[in-house]
Write a protein that binds this DNA or RNA. Structure first.
Lengths: 121, 121
DNA sequence: TATGAAAATGACAATCATTTTCATTTCTGT
DNA sequence: ACAGAAATGAAAATGATTGTCATTTTCATA
């Protein structure tokens, strides 16, 4: 994690929600932080690689970034015996964020559950 | 719905899953169908407007299209005013199927909902 | 059949986000 | 201080998508 990545991360933290590379660059430039657009792209790539930052897409295809939150998990529940398995749901987080952004929603949360018949039943 | 839109739709039907505008153009050109890339883009836009075709994004941001199926949808709900938007949830279907299979579950169903504050609130 | 307005078409140029290149600068350890 | 490595950013390249505009097609009506 190098210095500009940290500066980018701090900007991302400051804006709160999502921001595109170009927006981040505009903001940092406006605020007197001196940084090149190229460096922003590289920094964001690095942060995404380190899973510190999430990337998703606006409707027009522009990539937007946000700090990774504490990704909450979901449940797989047996309709018959009630056995519950905790599962990973990163795709759901992205889906929720993307759909919400596409429709102009803020302060987004979601629920998702899978139910079926477990192998023992 | 004009003639080229129909030809595009038929191509899309033929390929089955998803295809980008460029891919559709490549396929139609290869198959001797004479059509310009611009017309493909316009036709796809029209089809999306008529809700005959769905648009989504590849990871690299390229737009891909498919015929609207009867794919069941999900809801994006405003916590404040209750406004509800129907949204696409193909990723959810896949996620549910994959996680269920990984854990040996059968007869799988799922629920997923996103909630937040809509742009008017 | 002829005609003219409106819609459709497609070649080409423009736009815009993102990536690549490459010369220069900044670090890092010795 | 010095060499080599990593980081930086300006500018050019890339690639998808959109805009422009002259030409062609469609189609209702005379």
């Amino acid at each position: 994690m190098n210095k500009s990545s940290l500066r980018i991360l701090s900007t991302l933290e400051h804006v709160g929600g999502f921001a595109s590379a170009q927006e981040i660059h505009r903001i940092m430039t406006r605020d007197g932080k001196n940084i090149g657009l190229t460096t922003i792209y590289r920094g964001l790539q690095a942060l995404v690689g380190e899973k510190v930052v999430d990337i998703l897409r606006r409707d027009d295809g522009e990539a937007i970034y946000r700090m990774c939150g504490v990704a909450h998990h979901h449940h797989l529940v047996c309709k018959n015996c009630g056995r519950t398995v905790e599962i990973e749901g990163e795709v759901i987080e992205k889906w929720a964020a993307r759909e919400a952004a596409a429709n102009g929603f803020r302060e987004v949360g979601h629920s998702a559950e899978i139910f079926g018949i477990c192998s023992s039943c």
